[in-house]
């Protein structure tokens, strides 16, 4: 069934995203994939709700989405880019770890924002990759950067 669900369509719903990403609540930073071109480009969508638990502390009187979690949304979209269309069926059961991040935050993301995260490959190899990511709310760039990640064959325990 898994192979059937990963046929090249250009969108993935929440359940399909969960089939690929190992992250779970409260750490799923992508709700849906709105555009996907295997190995070339993935655009993830994160609807930022005022109900997110991180807004309790970041910050009590000024809710803005933490930059670290925006990077996480970019990283999770990168995992989809890495896995989608990858013929290795075990790939989604692997653990993904950040190598490095170079990012610039250009404007905040607030409750109610619909954040689109576009990720394109710089170089993908069998054990990781380097990607470019841009997070936008409407035409406003929230964050852009480049990150590297590695893929561990064993699941983290």
């Amino acid at each position: 069934m898994a192979s059937e669900k990963r046929q090249p369509v250009d969108q993935l719903d929440f359940n399909q995203v969960k089939e690929i990403l190992p992250q779970r609540f409260p750490f799923l930073m992508i709700d849906r994939i709105v555009e996907i071109k295997a190995g070339e480009k993935v655009v993830g969508l994160k609807n930022i709700s005022g109900n997110e638990e991180f807004f309790q502390g970041h910050f009590p009187d000024l809710p803005v989405m933490p930059g670290s979690l925006i990077l996480e949304a970019i990283a999770q979209t990168a995992i989809v880019l890495f896995c989608y269309g990858n013929t290795d069926q075990d790939v989604s059961r692997r653990t993904f770890l950040f190598g490095s991040v170079k990012a610039r935050f250009l404007s905040p993301a607030y409750p109610g924002d619909r954040m689109l995260v576009e990720v394109t490959p710089v170089k993908l190899i069998s054990t990781g990759g380097v990607v470019k990511g841009v997070a936008k709310v409407e035409d406003r760039i929230v964050c852009k950067g480049e990150l590297s990640f590695s893929v561990n064959k064993e699941k983290a325990t």
Binding site: G99, S100, K123, G128, V130, S148, F149, S150
Partner: peptide
Amino acid sequence: DSMMALEILVGIEKKYKVKIPE
């Protein structure tokens, strides 16, 4: 580590507009 080696490779690829296999 392996990630840094990959980033060095990417740095070379970008600078000289070449593609180097994994």
